[in-house]
Write a protein that binds this DNA or RNA. Structure first.
Lengths: 189, 189, 189, 189
DNA sequence: AATGAATGAGCATTCATTCAT
DNA sequence: TATGAATGAATGCTCATTCAT
């Protein structure tokens, strides 16, 4: 039993293909929603034979879990970047959150919608719950006092703003979002 | 071309069957989610032949729209009842909203989940948008000043609390929700 | 809800197709064994689209049950014929049974093998048990005293001779079988 | 070209793994029937990679042959034990055979069913015929005069009793089987 | 000697929809 | 007005087998 994982940390052929499949899945969800994910649609998108999907992800749920984990990680990174850059601009915490939301609902809208759908799917599929927690952690990391009433309200509102923003036809601007975020953060000072 | 709808307002046989089909659809969504809705699954649930579904609802989207309208109306009625009864108990607006949420996430959890899924589907299917607005109106009717920043925060938070409550394993109690609702309503006095 | 079954007893279109499918299934089993039965193989053999199989026989087991019933009925009829014609020839009960066995293992070998496989499948699939009983009844009808020890031995031996005859490369002749059948029937006089 | 089989008769690593695979195959057949045998199902049961099956048994038939040989040998040993112990109890040849059958259809039912399925498969797969003969030899060894009519009847009946016993829901007891066996052996005294 | 990776073919089954009746 | 019958397309998934390592 010898492993093909390289000692130097580089990925094996299989790992690389797994990553390609996950990324193709994300593109499918962006385009057609979670309902559009099937062995065949992902295989078509990734340019691999359908049996290759089942080989690397024995059940379709396994693929969704891997995709949710990847998407949450990517979104966390992107959120970190946006907040960092708004810190440099000196727009304060409310500005940072508003810009994060505007980015999520504007330029990153597709990814956000994909992530949101996967996150909501956890309500029906217990297998996705642990992975969904990763995204909740991203949101939680936006604040510091998870037990405070005000912070719970803030968290719920962020979630609701994302939901509503995704249903609206036009994405909101950071300027439109800012007063609401400020209102929510004010009691937390 | 003659209409079968009676002048006296009583429903024709066809209308009654349409209603049965819509109710069967709601039960299917509660049990298996929107993804579980098909001509056949609904027909099985309603005890009618599959072709009967296509006959009354030419496309599947027509059925989903009718179901969303019915579910939103039912939920609005139920919300009205809960708020009315909490008014009698004298628990104030915050108490009323907290009890509405606890009811939606507890006893009415199945219906809430079904409605929420249909509501989110509107993001992908424009045909459902007008019907989805009905549910938004229910939420909006909980407050009075739709233009205020505080109210927008409140609305978003209600939405987020419903989303998070549906993903959590255990439904929250009204007592747990009350302080958050009070916190959100306080600036609106 | 009106039925398409003709008042005059003639079969509906659906019934006719069901019969064609069952007969195609029998041919597939003769050629490739029960293991060769699939929606696709039967559809190919019957010259109908695969979905037609599922329409008329929701699960594959339903098709196997219908096939077992038909095959047992056909074999019962054939057995009756052989025994009747041997009675005319005056060869007595033992001769009749020997000729039945020779026919089953010779000219009707394919059908016998098919029926036998279906019959044995009942050991694994409870759904086939009631239908398998039909074939047992055919064998039982060869004798009259089902409770007698001698008759139980006779029945078991008939079954065993069929099994062994199907495994042997060359089918046995009635003349070869006759003494064994006589030996088994002797104590039953 | 050098052989790894040790001169001293001890098994090489490869031989041990082959044996493990055969035993896993037997367990699969007991549980799901011959139809459940595949490279993958056996590999799962044995806890080895699928390619290991193909490596040791180039075609699936090779695996089935090896399994049939092993199963027949095991059953022969078990039959010998049962007959020996019934000889000690002094229950005579008929008692010995009845107890062998009761054991085969009761405690050893799973193995018997597996062996029987493999044995019948020989009717379709010529590659299994030589191995199937081993099991026939076990049955034959129960008697001494293979040419006698009475013995042919006895052999066929043993086979039929096994078949019928496997299809019945409840295994028969030795006491129930004894009179039939005595009836069959009586003329052979 | 042994096994990860891969894949084309096939599986049972469900589907939305059409159409003759 | 309703519904049995029908079907092409798609679903998730398993399969035997090959091959590079």
């Amino acid at each position: 039993m010898r492993s093909y994982r390289r000692v130097d940390g580089r990925k094996t052929r299989g790992d690389r293909r797994k990553q390609e499949i996950v990324e193709a899945t994300l593109r499918v969800i962006e385009r057609e929603g979670v309902a559009g994910v099937s062995h065949r649609s992902v295989a078509r998108e990734a340019g691999v034979p359908p049996a290759s999907i089942t080989y690397h992800f024995p059940a379709l749920d396994d693929l969704l879990v891997a995709t949710l984990v990847t998407a949450a990680a990517e979104m966390a990174a992107r959120t970190g970047d946006v907040i960092e850059s708004s810190r440099i601009k000196g727009s304060g915490p409310a500005g940072a959150v508003a810009e994060m939301l505007a980015d999520a609902l504007g330029p990153s809208r597709g990814r956000t919608a994909a992530l949101h759908e996967l996150y909501l799917l956890a309500a029906r599929r217990p297998a996705l719950r642990p992975a969904a927690r990763l995204w909740i952690d991203v949101l939680t990391s936006l604040g510091r006092q998870p037990d405070e009433v005000g912070f719970r309200a803030f968290l719920a509102a962020i979630d609701g703003m994302l939901t509503q923003g995704l249903i609206d036809d036009e994405p909101p601007t950071a300027a439109e979002l800012l007063p609401v975020v400020e209102h929510l953060l004010a009691p937390l000072r």
